[in-house]
Amino acid sequence: MAKQTIRRTAANNVYLHKDFHGALSTGIEYLDQQYGPEAVRAYLRQFSSTFYAPLTQALQERGLSALQEHFERIYRLEGGKIQIAFSEDEMILEVEACPAVTHMRQHGYPVARLFYETTKTVDEAICEDTPFLSELLRYDEQTGRSTVRFYRRTP
């Protein structure tokens, strides 16, 4: 049997490893089982307030267009179909099928019971300390199809 060697640089490939969705789902399920559902939400709030801090800041400074750009970018990257209805004070995000859930279903990864919190809690956390709120209006656990409304807080 011959020896084999391959050499790759970052430029040889596109950074898109969708199996990471399965790893995140495994982590969510573990937290749920070991620490309970509130720990899942607390973790996702902690992650979102840290990692999405620049997005939250952009939302404060530029309004909902910052969120629109964010969602258009990540769903384009993952090949997810979305529709966005947009006005100055409200944005409705319709996701036809969540690329994360689709990938996990196609490849046999278990989808965590609370996986929807990666939409609900994350969106809520991104809006914290901004003039906006988010509301998960609809979520289908089988496909991840969802509708989220972002809207301006009333004084």
Binding site: L16, F20, A39, Y43, Q46, F47, T50, F51, E78, C98
Partner: peptide
């Protein structure tokens, strides 16, 4: 949705969260 390109910081924060708990 947390994009798969955002998973690594999510993973890192999960380790920190777990360590803070236990």
């Amino acid at each position: 949705m947390i994009a798969c390109t955002e998973f690594i910081p999510a993973y890192s924060e999960l380790f920190k969260f777990l360590e803070s708990r236990g």
